[in-house]
Design a protein around this nucleic acid. Sequence first.
DNA 1: ATTAAAATTTAAGTCTGCTTAAAAAAACAT
DNA 2: ATGTTTTTTTAAGCAGACTTAAATTTTAAT
Lengths: 218, 218
Amino acid sequence: MSVAIENFVKAIYNNDIQDHHDTKPGNIAKKLGISNAAATDMAKKLASKNLLQYEKYQALQLTEEGTKMALNVVRKHRLWEALLFKMFDMSLHEIHREAELLEHETSDFLANKISEYLGNPKFDPHGDPIPNADGEITTEDTSIALSQSAEGKAYIISRLMSDDKEFFDFCAQNGLKYGNTITIAKQFHKNKMTQISINNNTILLNEDFTNIIYVNEI
Amino acid sequence: MSVAIENFVKAIYNNDIQDHHDTKPGNIAKKLGISNAAATDMAKKLASKNLLQYEKYQALQLTEEGTKMALNVVRKHRLWEALLFKMFDMSLHEIHREAELLEHETSDFLANKISEYLGNPKFDPHGDPIPNADGEITTEDTSIALSQSAEGKAYIISRLMSDDKEFFDFCAQNGLKYGNTITIAKQFHKNKMTQISINNNTILLNEDFTNIIYVNEI
DNA sequence: ATTAAAATTTAAGTCTGCTTAAAAAAACAT
DNA sequence: ATGTTTTTTTAAGCAGACTTAAATTTTAAT
């Protein structure tokens, strides 16, 4: 299927499931930067391909097949984000921009390789769930803010919720990366400080940081 | 520029520089799997864009601008091959297949990140040179077969010249990967065997292997 | 040098994914 | 509830990247 089609079903999926916006052609058109007429055209075409249900003036609804396609593209997008984020010094904004292109040119084979390499992660660096190869999603997010972590326990970093370049630079310099393991050396509740241990280094973080760094128990 | 255009200039570049075949539309058409008519059309179009010189019934010649575009695509292709080969257990055939798609959706920014991550390699896993960001190529290949290596010296693996799945599996299991460092423990010239040291492990290789594993002096 | 074969170019047409403009329907405000 | 605004749909058309078929030119053989 073409890039245009993949982006169309993905836009419906995101608008519907994630953003809870309505999925009439106009909304999808706005999201994709195309005219309403083009969106209506495409909707009819995809209906004939059994990817969605189309009725005049009604919201578009993905069929099971259409949802599967959307999840496949979303999977690739989020796997790329996870991989690029882990390997390179790139911001959430940058990894998103690149993943938006790469997602359409990635075979299922390569997607599985990436997933395997990353240890089949269930969430991407934004904290969004990564569908597995069968399109199944883990909906409940079990990660917690670092400020809620327990002394002595080990965690895997699951989110760095920011778009601030300086924050990312700091994290990169100190090994605070998606997928890395850290241990909570000490929680100073009164001071709202957290002492963590990573790669035999000790870092003392204040609440500004521990509230936007999310982790999962191992 | 479109994927079709990128592939067209790349095909001319490869046909010309690499394969030393003639670059008339028919040859390019054959390489790209399109009709001769389509290739002629495209040639005229690209001439008007100053990417190549077109004269009826003559071979196509890339302009400086066209060559630059071709080198940019080739760079991305070979960087992807190097990255995928290093990270995942994939054959030369598989990395080529994936790179063929990814090369067109890779920003210069990302290409530079990949290059940097790999230590700005000058050759890909096939042994083909990787153009730098300015389109400059290292033409002389300084790599030698492992069978020609000198006892006691350290080398970086630069090529694994095979398409055999079993060979690749063996290499993967023993850390024999593009970019990895090995030391020559002993050369048994009579026996045509080479003992190498890698990651504190010792491996004894026969000529079948040392003739298709290429290395560079550090 | 003439002719047959092969390659290239021209011409006409298709399919995809858009566009703008106008018509029709739905949503909204008073 | 009615008229106005917004949205959706229809219609017509365009650019990119192809196709096949026919015409032209080049290449190669004798």
